[in-house]
Each structure stands twice: as C-alpha cells, then as structure tokens.
Design a protein around this nucleic acid. Sequence first.
DNA 1: ACCTGAACACCGTTCAAGT
DNA 2: ACCTGAACACCGTTCAAGT
Lengths: 199, 199
Amino acid sequence: MTETQKRPYHHGDLRQAIIETAIAMLNEPGGWQFTLREVARRAGVSHAAPYKHFPDKAALLAEIALIGFDRLHVALASARSGAGNATEALVAASRAYLVFGLGNPALYRLMFGAEIGNSAAVHRDKRAMGAFDVVMDLLAEGQAAGLIEKRGVAGQAASVWAQMHGLTMLKLDGMLRPERVGEDAVEAALASFYEGVFV
Amino acid sequence: MTETQKRPYHHGDLRQAIIETAIAMLNEPGGWQFTLREVARRAGVSHAAPYKHFPDKAALLAEIALIGFDRLHVALASARSGAGNATEALVAASRAYLVFGLGNPALYRLMFGAEIGNSAAVHRDKRAMGAFDVVMDLLAEGQAAGLIEKRGVAGQAASVWAQMHGLTMLKLDGMLRPERVGEDAVEAALASFYEGVFV
DNA sequence: ACCTGAACACCGTTCAAGT
DNA sequence: ACCTGAACACCGTTCAAGT
C-alpha cells in the first residue's frame, strides 16, 4: 500500500504493479479509456517501462481480462458452495454474476470486449470456462435431482450463460429503464427465465 | 457510388457522407478502432471538416449506434411479418437478431458499447425500444393465443431480449466453442430457451 | 455557410543509452 | 536484467483564415 514513487531505479515487481494499477484505473469513472502512459505514470515509472513486461497494450488488457474471469469464477463458485440444492445454487450464482458485472463495469466490458484480439481470445475462452463449468455442473446436478428440466446440458448451459451475460449488459447499458420494463426488471427477467428452466 | 475526391470545396452533404463512410469502415476487419481522421480522409475532406457537423467523435459514434438500432428494428419487424403465429414469429425474430449481430460485429458492439456516453444513452434507449416493442408485442400476442407461458410481459420480454443479446455476444466473442458446448450451440441454446417459454 | 492548414496536447511504440 | 529519454508516427480537438 506504500504508493510512493521514490523507488531506486529498479522496481521490485513492476509487472505486478502495472497490472494492479491498471485494474484500479478500470474501476474509476471513465476507466474504460485506459492509457498505458497513465498506468506507467501512476506506477512511478517511465512510459517505456511497461514494454519490458508486456509486448503491447493489448497484451496487458488481455491479461487483465483473464484475471477478471478468474475472479468471476471464484464469485460463482463461492455463491454455489454457500447455497443449498442445485436450483438455489443456480439462483445464487446468477445473483453473484450480476453483482460482479454491475460492480466492475469496465472490467466486465473488457472481458467481453473486442479489444482482446482473436489470438488472445483462445486463452480468454479457456479461462472463462472455469466459470462456465460451474453452471454446467449445477445444471447436471439439478437435472439428476429432478429439479431442473431435462434438456441437453450444453445448450441449457449456453442459454443460462447468455441470460446472465445479456441481463448484465443490458443493465450496464441502462437499457432496462423502469418506465419501460418495470421497477426491477432484472429480478423479473431472472424469475421469468428460471420459471422455464426449473421443473 | 462515385467515390472520387475532386469535389469543389463544398461537399454536397458531408454530414451524410461521413456517416456512410463511418458505417462502411465499421464493417471492415478491425473496424472497431475507428479514427475520425481516417473517415475524413476517405470522404476526401480535411480532418477538421467533420467538426462542422458533429461536436466530437463520440457524437458521431452515438448517431451511428442509433442507426444500428433502427436497422435492427427493421430486421425484427420484417422477420415478424414474414412468419405465421406468434411463436414462429418470435423464433424468426430471434434468428434475424442473431444474423444482424453476427453480420455487423463492430456496429453491434458499438450499439451496446461504453463509448456511447451516458448522456447519449437516453437516446439509445429510446431508439432501441422500437426493436424491444416488437418482442413485447409478440409475447403479448402469444400469451393471448395460449402459445406462450403467461408471465409478466415486461420481465419475459427482458428475458427474451437478454437471451438474444447474450447469445449474440458470446458467439461474437468466440466463447461458444464446439469442443465445449457442441457443434451448433446457438441453436441448442435457443431451443432450450424457448422450450421454457412456449407452452 | 462551409471548409482548410497549422497548431496543441496527447497517445502507442521503438531504440539507443544509462544503472 | 531492468529502466530512461528522446524520437516517430499517429490521434482528437481548436481556431484563425480562406472560398
């Protein structure tokens, strides 16, 4: 937490410091327009220094996106373990998903953004799957327990994932306005959705 | 289609030309990193000229996003009128939605992106509602005809919208990989979703 | 009324040179 | 091995001046 910039030429772990500074910047208003030079400035280092640790700006962003997926994974897993049966856990995980997305708007957008090049997209996909697997497991478990409609698990999981992602995004974009779609459209949509999934 | 740049100082309708050029650029690979100077260049005009028609870059992007929503509205409405009953129309509209999003990746991302400032978000919301209303009408119609599960229409519509948006985005991000979630995960997810919505 | 050209303050990225 | 400083090619935006 000692954020002084009187470091002795060599920064202890600049790579890590850059990542942390960048994530912190993302959570500020307007943090989505994110400048490598500003990160360097805040880390107390020259604007060229980051290039010793990341090939370019996109690489840093990609790395941060992966960290975001790890955090989402943790949030979902912990929501699951704190809940009872599969359907309760699924609802809890959905809420946790929304809380994560709405609480970290710029990070969340970055995770699903086009700034991540197609080459890095493969890694994104892999790390994202940790969170995805939580959903798939819950669905399989719920189906086995007779709590969830028996359909193809992959398609069902994709549908659940899309529902959570879609709701998060629409809410972030301010597209679920009370005068249009009711006071708490997110809750209503989630309820409506799970009515069709739970048995 | 005469894209010559020998215009006599005054461009006929530069404002319109800028918008069209910008939309064309969006549909090129890497079109999401979109530069005002390049638009001016292609329009055969100085880099300062656009500022006579748009206060800044964000304003141009916001305008283009609104056009995108109009086009989506048209696509959904035409899919609806080409289909039979409410459920068939809903499926047709969902397909049209996906085709639109996957066919115009950068435009679609722009429509839902953070580049649109919060002030412009209100307008975005209003224009987006044209498309949203198509969905709501179809649901109300389907419920009345006993084809669709009777739930709160607002929540149901939000859920449908979220499903389409989520699927489009996940597909655009390359997050629905065959080895994970099957060959045609989009179709499977859509089928799974509508099983829970249709009666 | 509409457009240009030069100018300003910024970026991302590179590279020789410093410690 | 790690970092700096100057440099390059670009942006977005502004503004006096041109047509």
